[in-house]
Amino acid sequence: MTMRLLTAVLRTVRDSRRLATGLVILALMVLLAVFSPLIVHSIGHGNDPIALAAYQKWLVPSPDHLLGTDQFGRDVLAMVVSAMSVSLQIGAIAGVISTVVGVIVAFVAGYKGGWVDGVLSTFTGILLVIPTFPLLIALSAYAKNVSLFQVGVMISIFSWPFAAKTIRSQVLSLRSRPYVDLARVSKARDLEIIGTELLPNLLPFIGVGFASSALGAIFGLVGLEVIGLGPGGVIDLGQIIFNAINTGALTLGAWPMFVVPIVLLTLLFAALNMVNIGLEEVYNPRLRGVAGE
């Protein structure tokens, strides 16, 4: 069973170049994030390269410090690597929470219908129109010393309705398909129909929901960092950009401090979108080649 699933996934990836590219970039970034403690350690040669005054300030890129150092003499490469791990973590936390909540709400509302749908949809709608960012600012200003996980939860409170809304409308359209009727006369139970008939067809939408929540969270954290309300003691990509802007790093020749985090964020954005579009291509039979590719 696992073998079959694995070969199916492999075949899917092989068939779509977009999906493969997106996944490879994403995988590389995740690998980099997972091994970030090791990388940081090897950069510091035993010392902490992100400690204040670890090196001289404002060193330009050189073989010793590939991306130079910042205003406190910290190694920028080491900072970027660990910051990316933080950014991916917040994306994963918020993405998983809001996708799970969104999918559950969407399926209950869409499949059950009636008053259950009415209540859930109204609630989703209310959350959807609340301006998220000002409220995030208020929340993080109120809660002192928030942790990374708490920020993730705060961001996902406001990002699940988006996923729920799109998926619910799809469930509504899919549940009246004849193949659902056929499953019912074949003695399939509600949960089985949701899991095996509806869910696979919604994977692209769930993927889109996950990616947009994750991206929203990553950029939300960047926004919070810029105004100094981010979680204490962690450096994410946003904070590096913020430092670069604040200290005028570009004029001091420390361009990597500004350019590298932005390139990484752009790459992440592109990779997630490529995965989305690729999934759509694979699961939408109309975009598939006729008669066996």
């Binding site: 398909r177 004849p178 193949y179 009727d181 056929l182 499953a183 006369v185 074949s186 003695k187 399939a188 008939e197 696979p200 067809n201 699961y283 039979p285």
Partner: peptide, 27 residues
């Protein structure tokens, strides 16, 4: 049943065999 629309009676996600295997297993 035999339904009207031969296009939407199959879940596009699966191979057509599944409809038959499902009948074998479920019954």
């Amino acid at each position: 049943p035999v339904f009207q629309d031969p296009y939407s009676i199959f879940n596009p996600f699966y191979r057509v065999d599944r409809v038959l295997w499902k009948a074998v297993k479920k019954f």
